[in-house]
């Protein structure tokens, strides 16, 4: 079943310098047991999108959407109170970034998880304690660590504790914010391996928000690439990696190092992402795109289907073969500004 259905999500920040379209008509679907990755770099809007789903945006953010359903329930119709009572932690939960020190340093880790459980359910203290033991087992932490304090945990262990907390009430959807950023390569590898195993045992779908393409490649079944607030390409991970369509995706592939081919010269995308005002009438990537045409600046490209479940927002999607070939040349990317 469709766990999350989002159609035309929009967020506008009202800043001192004017309105800023942080999320611009983003639509996607997350099915049953998917791991859906949302990839993007700074300014892509992925963090804003995530906060939208969790209702963590500040009051200055103007949110609108055509549709947002969780397992058929209309989330837009819910007020904040019902959302917090019925959905948050129970149906949709969050694993924040490790760097955010989401664990309270003065309470034991086990106690914090129990508190979260009891706050959102009617479980007794003993039942909650048993659940913590269960969760620790799933994430691979020793049960005795529940009595420890966060500072006694390493970064990787803290991350796993946060994952345990997010699983506590058996939610249908878990949102993970940069699960491996800031962790050592070895710890990162362990977490990724663990997540794969855990996911197999869980019923939840996962939305994974990250800038790390390699993490997406290793974990996700589907991915949506965001740029300057818009979704530029989305589809199954294999298809996206083997035959990407959008110039930004091509650029990302070029820029991302692969330890197996260290001789490949990495190519950067010159320039930096724009801050788009609402109602911008051009492709968001036009300023940096090496394949830009005049029509790219006149109208916003529509999302089109190129293969089964694979969509791209690019006027030149039909020439993808040719673009892919050109993208491999360094010269193509030289100052397309």
């Amino acid at each position: 079943m469709t766990v999350l259905e989002a159609v035309n999500l929009r967020v506008v920040y009202h800043t001192a310098e004017g309105p800023l379209q942080a999320v611009d008509d983003v639509s996607f679907q997350v099915e049953g047991h998917d791991i859906f990755g949302i990839a993007g770099e700074s300014g892509s809007g992925k963090s804003t999108l995530m906060k939208l789903l969790l209702r963590l945006l500040p009051v200055t953010a103007e949110v609108s959407a055509d549709r947002l359903r969780y397992r058929g329930h209309d989330l837009l119709a819910m007020d904040d109170r019902s959302f917090r009572r019925q959905i948050l932690w129970k149906e949709i939960s969050l694993v924040p970034q490790t760097a955010q020190n989401a664990l309270n340093p003065v309470y034991r880790v086990g106690d914090q998880i129990m508190e979260a459980i009891q706050a959102h359910s009617t479980m007794s203290r003993r039942a909650a304690r048993l659940r913590v033991a269960e969760l620790f087992d799933i994430v691979g932490l020793e049960d005795r660590l529940a009595e420890s304090y966060p500072h006694q945990f390493s970064g990787g262990m803290r991350q796993r504790a946060m994952i345990a907390m997010s699983l506590a009430l058996d939610p249908g959807l878990i949102i993970m914010d940069e699960p491996t950023t800031g962790l050592d390569v070895l710890t990162q590898e362990r977490i990724l391996r663990n997540l794969r195993q855990m996911h197999a045992k869980m019923r939840s779908a996962i939305i994974l928000v990250t800038h790390d393409i390699a993490v997406i490649a290793e974990l996700c079944s589907h991915v949506g690439i965001m740029y300057a607030g818009r979704l530029v390409e989305q589809g199954p991970v294999r298809a996206m990696f083997q035959a990407p369509f959008h110039p930004y995706t091509l650029g990302l592939k070029n820029a991302f190092p692969d330890i197996r081919e260290m001789d490949r010269k990495l190519i950067s995308i010159p320039g930096s992402p724009p801050h788009l005002a609402p109602g911008a009438r051009s492709c968001s990537f036009a300023a940096r795109c090496p394949f830009v045409l005049p029509e790219c600046r006149d109208a916003r490209p529509r999302m089109q289907d190129v293969e089964a479940g694979h969509q791209v927002a690019c006027t030149r999607a039909g020439e993808a073969e040719e673009l892919r070939r050109l993208a491999r040349e360094r010269e193509t990317w030289r100052s397309s500004m």
Binding site: S154, L186, E189, R190, I216, A217, V237, F241, I259
Partner: peptide, 27 residues
Amino acid sequence: AALLAAVPVPDPLFRRAVPDIVDDVAR
């Protein structure tokens, strides 16, 4: 060797070998 083996690879078809290292000793 473990460092080299652990670097994530941007290729969904690649199955990495598990780094030969004991996991997660607290600091």
